[in-house]
C-alpha cells in the first residue's frame, strides 16, 4: 500500500526521535531503524485498510503509534531492550588521548604559526620588517612577537586548543585522540552531544594543569560516573564504543 509523502517524512522523523531516546550500539542502529520503520508503517497500513483507503496517511501512522502507546512506549518496547548502558571509558585511555590531542594541536599550531610568521615577514618587508622572527619553541607568542600587532597573541593558542576540541567533539563526539581509542563523548542519557556541551566540557583543557585538576574529580568525587568536573557541568560522559 502506498505511503503519502507527508506520512513518509513523519515516519522518518518519528523513528529517529524514538531511537534517540536510548543509546544503541552503532552496529545495531541500521537494523533497528528499518525494523521500527517497517513496524510503524505496518500499524498505519492496518488503520488505512480498515478505513477502506488505499494510501497510508500521516494520520494512520499517528493512530498506529497511539495504539502502541506513543513514542515513549515504542522506545521502551523496541529500543530499550537493545540499548546497552555504554561502558565508561578507561581513565588512562582518556589521558593518553588528551596528550595525543595536545601534540596534534601543537604541531598544527606550529605549522599555522610558521605560515602566519612567514606571510607577515614578507608583507612587512617593504616597511622594514625582517624574516626569521619565528621561534618554533615559543608556541604562545611566536607569530606576533615583537611586532605589536596582537600583543595578546599569547592567548591565541588557548583559542586554538578550545576550538579544536569544541569542533571535533561537537561535530562527531570525538577528538582525533579519542578516535584512536574508540572513545566517544555522549550526553548522560546516551544521546549525541552538540557544540554547546563540547565547549563547556573542554574549557579547562586549554591549560594542562587545570585539566589535570579537573580530571582529579574523576578519582575523588565522580568515580561511578567517571566524570571530570566540567563533564559534570556539561552533563556528559566519555564512553567506549
Amino acid at each position: 500500500m502506498k505511503l503519502s509523502a507527508e506520512g513518509q517524512a513523519w515516519l522518518n522523523a518519528t523513528v529517529q526521535r524514538v531511537m534517540a531516546r536510548h543509546h544503541v550500539a552503532e552496529a545495531e542502529r541500521a537494523g533497528l531503524h528499518y525494523e521500527l520503520m517497517s513496524h510503524l508503517h505496518g500499524a498505519g497500513e492496518e488503520k488505512a485498510r480498515s478505513a477502506g483507503r488505499d494510501e497510508v496517511s500521516m494520520g494512520d501512522l499517528q493512530a498506529g503509534l497511539l495504539d502502541m502507546g506513543g513514542e515513549e512506549a515504542m522506545a521502551q518496547a523496541f529500543v530499550a531492550p537493545r540499548a546497552k548502558p555504554p561502558k565508561r571509558a578507561d581513565i588512562v585511555k582518556r589521558a593518553i588521548a588528551y596528550l595525543i590531542d595536545l601534540v596534534i594541536v601543537f604541531l598544527a599550531w606550529m605549522a599555522v604559526a610558521a605560515i602566519i610568521d612567514i606571510t607577515l615577514s614578507v608583507l612587512l618587508l617593504p616597511f622594514g620588517g625582517t624574516f626569521g622572527g619565528f621561534d618554533p619553541f615559543d608556541v604562545f607568542g611566536s607569530p606576533f612577537k615583537g611586532r605589536g600587532f596582537i600583543p595578546a597573541g599569547f592567548g591565541l593558542v588557548f583559542v586554538v586548543i578550545l576550538g579544536y576540541f569544541t569542533w571535533t567533539e561537537g561535530k562527531a563526539g570525538a577528538s582525533l585522540g579519542k578516535r584512536i581509542f574508540k572513545l566517544k563523548v555522549v550526553r548522560v542519557d546516551g544521546t549525541p552531544i552538540g557544540y554547546r556541551e563540547a565547549l563547556i566540557r573542554n574549557v579547562t583543557k586549554v591549560f594542562p594543569p587545570l585539566a589535570f585538576l579537573d580530571a582529579l574529580f574523576i578519582l575523588v568525587f565522580f568515580r561511578a560516573e567517571q566524570q571530570r568536573a566540567s563533564d559534570r557541568l556539561a552533563e556528559t560522559v566519555v564512553v567506549e564504543e
Binding site: 500500500m1 502506498k2 505511503l3 509523502a5 513518509q8 515516519l11 528499518y34 525494523e35 520503520m37 517497517s38 508503517h41 505496518g42 497510508v56
Partner: peptide, 13 residues
C-alpha cells in the same frame, strides 16, 4: 530477507 514492498514504503523483513 529484507524486501522492497513498494517505492517510498519502508522495506520489510
Amino acid at each position: 530477507q529484507w524486501r522492497e514492498v513498494e517505492p517510498g514504503v519502508p522495506p520489510r523483513k
